[in-house]
Design a protein around this nucleic acid. Structure first.
Lengths: 231, 231
DNA sequence: CTGAAAACAAGAGCGGTGCTCACAAAAGTG
DNA sequence: CACTTTTGTGAGCACCGCTCTTGTTTTCAG
């Protein structure tokens, strides 16, 4: 018989949710390094030390926020790239656009996961699975195609990988369960790097004034990568 | 008659240099948001308030560090890409490698300029010129070639830019004084985005364990971009 | 050389931070 | 009801950025 959660457990999860919510709202105006537990406690009408019953340090809170952000972004990408009647190329660009939309909507959370590492913060084990989910979702829409056209990719400007790189690509292919050719892995990573780079530059205002909004530029990148991937 | 700097001026610039040096060393173990002026003053054997004679706020110090970082990186790229007997393709890859080497050698400074925006920090006017220097130096080795082969670029997978994008690309071409075709601007920005993205991912540990070191991966990206640029 | 002006340093202080610890109040359990 | 676990309290430590007043030192003009 499933005994439901005790009132105490309910209160606890409720409080945790509130803490996270307040942390996020605080994060939107400052940055991870300046997240103030005391301020959260204050808004929670709780004495400052009480918050340590929920998160034993600020880093722990930040880790929770990072995990949430990965999950959230991952889900958004999964939805955008879900298999359906659209062609692969369309699903690919939808996935990329979803990533940009998420990043523009929640720039501080994007910075949390793909921005520069936090102060002395070390990413614990907990974050690597959710991080993988994002990568999976990002590559998801295209791996099928890349699998069936094993030899075609590699034409689009990629040189034949050397021995070292080849090994690393195979390891990565294995780790991500892609089952595509090394060159395809390379092309996927290249696309990922460009998308992350473009978003990083845009969010931090590095696009020399000329690109506001950068919609068209981003779309051009995405379209180009689609071509390079042979979609 | 050039009256040399007064002793006081000498002491001042000397102190400023020391402050920056201490700030950098502090930055290598923490992050910009945690830079402590008090700690610097302490190591300088000076009372904490005295440091405000040199930088009137922490943000001002950070701005100075950012400007220095841009200049430093810019100089490194300029040296690596200087015109000489090497072919263009080689100068391009040397420039990209120089950027990576700089980033690996000074990850905190790279994060300062290309990482996620600092807390509540707003980049003041002073930083945009040095930032431009980096972009110039990065594009420098290849613009000549792109200029002389106006029509060739555009073949490598780039679709014809739409009207909006075309206008933005022309504005950017103008702003950077490139004088290359819109598609070439696009290709250059794409290369820049991928390089920044690759470095961001590498420095923040996003390369799924498999790429350590990521030398070969980075080189493959650079080589690929060279091909895409038609070098 | 002297005296005013400018630059610098000192020290106290304000309000804020993360985090710890001993203790009191609830909430759940036998 | 007594007992244990969990949650909240409040004081306190050592730090932070930054301001302000006071005193010292250096520069420079007369």
């Amino acid at each position: 018989m499933a005994k439901g959660p005790t009132p105490r457990e309910v209160a606890r999860t409720e409080n945790i949710a509130r803490i996270k919510r307040l942390a996020l709202s605080q994060l939107s105006s400052t940055s991870a390094g300046e997240l103030s537990l005391r301020a959260i406690a204050r808004e929670l009408n709780i004495v400052s030390s009480a918050i340590y019953r929920y998160y034993s340090s600020r880093d722990e809170l930040i880790t929770a926020l990072i995990v949430d952000a990965y999950d959230d972004l991952g889900r958004a990408l999964e939805e955008a790239g879900a298999a359906d009647r659209r062609g692969v190329r369309r699903r690919w660009s939808d996935t990329c656009r979803a990533m940009r939309e998420w990043a523009l909507a929640e720039p501080h959370r994007f910075a949390l996961v793909y921005g520069s590492a936090i102060p002395g913060y070390r990413a614990p084990q907990d974050t690597i699975a959710p991080a993988g989910r994002v990568v999976d979702a990002f590559f998801g829409p295209v791996v099928d195609v890349l699998r069936s056209s094993r030899d075609e990719v590699g034409v689009n400007g990629w040189s034949r990988p050397g021995r070292v790189l080849l090994g690393q690509l195979e390891v990565t292919d294995e780790a991500l369960g892609l089952e595509v050719s090394p060159t395809a892995v390379l092309a996927l990573l290249g696309a990922f790097a460009r998308v992350i780079g473009a978003l990083t530059l845009e969010l931090n205002g590095h696009f020399v004034g000329g690109f506001e909004p950068a919609d068209a530029l981003f779309d051009a990148f995405v379209d180009h990568e689609a071509t390079l991937l042979g979609l």
